[in-house]
Amino acid sequence: MTNSQRTYGNRRAPLPPAESLADGVPSPRTTHKESARPAPPVRQRDAFFDNAKYLAIVLVAVGHAWGQLLDVRAVETAYRVVYTFHMPAFILISGYFSRSFDLRPKYVKRLVTGVVVPYVVFETAYSLFERHGNDRPDHGITLLDPTYHLWFLCALVVWRVTTPVWRTVRHPLAVSLVLAALGSLSPRIGDDLELQRVLQFLPFFVLGLTLRPEHFQRVRHHSVRLMSLPVLAVATAVAWWSVPRMHVGWLYHKSAAEELSAPWWSGPVMVSGTLTCSLVLTVCFFAWVPRRHMWFTALGAGTIYGYLVHGFFVKAGIYAGWFDHPALREPLGAVGLTVLAAAVITLLCTGPVRRTLRCVVEPKMAWAFVREPAEAARGHARRENTEVRTQGERVPV
């Protein structure tokens, strides 16, 4: 065995000439030690946002469970308080992390694999579940009318695709508020892709695009946390008062004023009022989100899994009539249901579930996309380096 590259006999073959490669790619003639460069620093996840996402997804699941017990006034009061801010908080965080989104191929790929594909897969799955689990053989599969909670994925696609617009126009938040108000005027917008919700929740996504890290530092101040307590008390009192007086549909932001049996002019007024309340309670929510690593912090990275899957449990309970049990109308029954919903959504955010469903929730799908020139050049350089190292290995004499 020799360490040199061999051709015939014991003569050494000349090494290939040096080539100019892309930045960051070692030359074939440099050794591994020489070509090694310090690895870029690993970007740490912010525990605050992972905690916020986990707590918000727990509230989503609990809210969906409470939604089956709205004949109990105390439950509906808590339901209205939660529904005022839990999705706005989620949407604001989504906007904040979409600030760098543009229509470059790498972002489009992430949008397709991380939002569009999961929507298609789970929309189909929920439609089949409705057909067979609820004994509705005539229930069809349509991708234009999102099932249950999947509207958020449709909205996220629209919001992210329009992100360059909101990053370009002057006064984007004001424009989004006008669109939200206009969206409440006419029922003709229809249910396709839940455009009513897309428009009426748009201001929170745009607000997230305009925020900076220091804004979140301010809401986490101790004084904000203290002020949030009386605000929450007032919100609870108002929610209790509103149960027989205000249609809960105003909090869903999925209908025009006429569809809620209200005059057309009340749409912009109610949308403006409910969005203001949502913003105040969202600030209160962020004020109480822990800033340090907690036992549930790691689960914040898997909230999309819990969001997509937990609906099967809620719908199964509806189909089987579990929510009709009289015990759930008792205080202990409602508390038990709350704990169960929080436990189920927590389990759905864990590693085993994420590993099992990653193929449909976060698929790679490299086969579906054209390789970018820079990526192709890096792959070509890696292949050349591999060939040179292979040729330089010891060979039998």
Rank of each mutant, 00 (worst) to 15 (best):
L229K: 12
F152E: 08
N10G: 13
T303L: 01
H132G: 00
V335M: 08
E123L: 04
V248M: 04
V121H: 00
R11D: 10
M294P: 00
F204Q: 00
S223W: 13
P118C: 14
H215Q: 11
K53G: 01
V335D: 01
P16A: 15
T124H: 03
H222V: 11
G133W: 00
N3Q: 14
P230F: 06
T113L: 09
V178I: 15
R167K: 13
E330A: 11
A74T: 03
R292L: 10
L69S: 02
W240L: 13
G351S: 13
L251P: 02
V175F: 01
Y119C: 03
G9N: 11
A376H: 12
V309Y: 00
G317Y: 08
E76H: 09
S184Y: 06
T2L: 06
T113N: 13
Y8K: 09
F296T: 15
T356I: 12
K315M: 10
W240M: 07
T303I: 05
G190N: 06
V248C: 00
L279D: 03
F286A: 14
V344M: 12
S35Q: 14
V238P: 04
V339T: 06
R378D: 05
Y319P: 02
S223N: 05
H132A: 05
R291Y: 00
G333H: 00
E393G: 08
P28I: 13
V117E: 03
D145K: 14
G392L: 12
E384Y: 07
T168S: 15
S4T: 12
V234G: 04
L15E: 15
H247N: 12
P40K: 15
F369V: 11
G392Q: 13
T386F: 08
V289K: 10
V353P: 02
Y96D: 07
V395A: 14
D138G: 06
A316C: 07
S27E: 14
P16K: 10
W265Y: 08
E194M: 08
Q196C: 09
L153Q: 06
P41S: 10
G95H: 04
R11I: 14
L279T: 07
M227C: 12
A89F: 13
L357Q: 00
I91S: 10
R167V: 01
